[in-house]
Structure formats: structure tokens, C-alpha cells
Simulated scan of single mutants.
Amino acid sequence: MQRNAVLNDSELDYLSELFEHKQEVAAADGYNHMISVTTEVPQLIASLLGQAKFTLLAEVGHYKLWFPLEMTLDEFGQPNPMLGIPEVVEYSGNERSWRLASLQDIRFCDQRYADKVQLLSLSSTGLAFKLDCPQLTAQLLQQSELQLSLPDGQALQLRFEPVRQHNSIIAARISSCKQQRELLRRFLFQRHRQHFPALYQQLK
């Protein structure tokens, strides 16, 4: 059966009312974990989630997990929610995509940079790296794409645009196609769960 993923305005209104609720989970760590479904997606992450019409929001500690939620209709015309990979947002102060700083097991696929570039941070929206060689810095900044090797062997291809440079440290904005964006988001979500396992215990 072919899925019908296109919803009209009345169906969207119906689903909005259907899922207009919040579930609060009291956690042992003192935080109140909130779970809700919303049609309002923050502009910060709208492009990262592929302009999803619905999202499932799980608030755990100082983090928000925005799951893209696709609503399809089954053969009986009933809503069938399908969750995607979440974007992890930290909101201690300003909201921003969570940055991973433990990157020792991520490598540049290009051997010119493999042992000469140090990755400092990686998120869904940007990365920072350090180069001590001016010649390599110039070469890397002439590129518009780079490829990283993830710990499981998958290659992550990212388009990047430098936004600032301070001495040997460069911060860049990244973008990618949907497939690569989801690969990066899945990797970051897995790492977030590994770093903060206590936050997820009450969400099982």
C-alpha cells in the first residue's frame, strides 16, 4: 500500500488538537522531563529537521530533543506517527545545537589533514578545528567540502564555510544533504546518550 504523507489543513488541525498535551516525568536526578508534540518548530532547527510539520519535544535536564514527526495515514485513515532522529539542543543560556568536544576517534579522510588537524568541536550546525601549519590552513580554506570518518567506519561528507579564525583555530558553519545531515544527527544523538545516560533513564 502506498503511504499518504500529504495532509490537508483540516487534518493538520485535527492532529494538532489530538496531540496538544504534555507529559511530565519526575526524574530521580531532580529534573522534570517534559514530553510534548507541537507544530511549532523553532527557526533555529527548522532547516535541520527538513521543515517537519510536527515535532516531538522531549526536555531532559538542560537539553531539548526535537524529534521530527511524520504523520501518515494507514489503510483505515488513522494517523500513523513516525519518529525521526532528534536534534539535540542545549538551552543553558542561549539555545544552540549541542556540541560534542570528545572527538579523538573521528578522523579526516584526506590524509593531508589526518594527523595535522585537531577537531575541537562538532555539532549539527558547525565545527571548530585547529591547524598549526599555515600552508595546510590555506589549502583547507580553499575547499568547500571535507570528509570525516566516523568510529563505525561511515564517511560523513560536509560542506563548510569558515565564519571566523583566531590564530590557528577556525570555526565553520556546515551544511549537507538530508542523508548526511541525518547521519551526523544520529551520531551526535548516540554520543549525547553515552555522555548523559542518567538523563535518559526516565524516558524509557
Rank of each mutant, 00 (worst) to 15 (best):
T39G: 04
P68E: 10
M82R: 15
P151V: 05
A28R: 14
I85Y: 11
T125N: 15
F129R: 04
F67S: 06
H33D: 11
L69F: 07
R193G: 04
P162C: 12
S92I: 03
L156A: 06
Q180R: 05
Y14P: 00
N94F: 09
A172E: 08
L199R: 05
Q139N: 13
T39H: 02
L131T: 06
R99D: 11
M1I: 10
F196W: 14
L83Q: 14
E11A: 07
F67E: 04
Q51E: 04
L203G: 04
Y31H: 09
V88K: 10
T72G: 08
E87L: 15
R99A: 14
D29R: 13
Q23W: 13
S16E: 07
F108P: 01
F108R: 04
L140P: 02
N80A: 14
R3D: 10
E90C: 10
L158W: 06
A198S: 12
I35D: 13
E11P: 00
N8Y: 02
K22S: 15
Q118T: 14
Q118V: 12
Q194G: 05
L57N: 11
L188Y: 09
L156D: 08
S168F: 07
A198C: 03
Q78Y: 14
Y31I: 03
D29M: 11
S102V: 10
L184F: 07
D132Y: 03
S176N: 03
L140S: 06
F196M: 11
L83A: 15
D152L: 08
G61D: 02
I85T: 15
R185D: 13
K53D: 10
T72F: 02
K204G: 12
Q139A: 12
F54M: 01
T137S: 12
Q78L: 15
G77S: 07
Q51L: 01
S123M: 06
L120H: 03
L83Y: 14
S124Q: 15
Q78F: 13
E90M: 13
E17Q: 12
L7R: 04
E182S: 08
L150G: 11
L183W: 00
M71A: 09
L140F: 14
L18R: 09
G50H: 00
L127Q: 08
L44C: 03
N4H: 00
G126Q: 06
A114Q: 09
Q190T: 11
L136F: 07
L44S: 07
L122I: 04
G153A: 12
E75D: 12
L18F: 02
I174E: 11
E24D: 14
V117Q: 04
